[in-house]
Write a protein that binds this DNA or RNA. Structure first.
Lengths: 112, 112
DNA sequence: ACGCTATACAACTGTATGGTTGTATCAATG
DNA sequence: CATTGATACAACCATACAGTTGTATAGCGT
């Protein structure tokens, strides 16, 4: 399994901030520019711009020119990469449960 | 939708470090103590202990006394909370696609 | 060309974080 | 009960990060 890979660091760290998660959510609609996003938060334009840059480096959003604006869109594949990693943990977990169940079963069998 | 809630901050931030993700993975087996975990990484015992504490605060692992050791186990519900949030983003994404598709369809209808 | 709007980026500040070493607690064992 | 092993915690350092302000670039409207 691969728990390393520089991008998981960036993806999860990027998601570890409530403002950035909210930007991801809003950017699903894919219609707002950076300034419009910034209006939703109690911080400067530059701060929001930095958050967007973090999300962009993590591959969670992309920016696309549209006139003088840059529209921010969430890049769903980035989210899916994170989901897949969590899914693999779940599989490992289920595997462990199965092994424990098997162990208990065979023990019972032996004790019959 | 709720993207806030203090725990998502902690959960995702905790997962944003490769060492901690590896600890989560190893702790699925649920047999190693802190010292045993620490042997796997090129850092001090105290550093690993801090990582475990971060994971514990995020609700991703629990520690259980076993003799003089404390066995670290991953708490799968913490992982599932993160998964569910990502799932909701996916749903929003699909909803957007559906709406776009509907828009295109009705546009075509109108142009018939 | 000029001004206005949206974005980008650099420099700075305070605080959080990852790492270290050293000391303290607690449980098993001789 | 003194020692050893496993864990916990505090103090400290270096670096990263979230926020700020200020300046620079790019595109639109007049």
């Amino acid at each position: 399994m691969q728990t390393t890979g520089p991008d998981f660091d960036r993806v999860f760290a990027a998601l570890g901030d409530a403002t950035r998660r909210d930007i991801v959510r809003r950017a699903i609609a894919g219609v707002e520019g950076v300034a419009e996003l910034a209006d939703h938060y109690p911080m400067s334009f530059a701060a929001v711009q930095k958050h967007v840059a973090v999300l962009e480096r993590a591959g969670l959003v992309t920016k696309q020119r549209s006139g003088r604006r840059k529209v921010v869109r969430t890049h769903v594949e980035g989210l899916r990469a994170a989901q897949r990693l969590l899914d693999r943990y779940e599989e490992l977990w289920r595997g462990r449960i199965d092994r424990m169940t098997a162990l208990i079963t065979t023990t019972k069998e032996r004790n019959k």
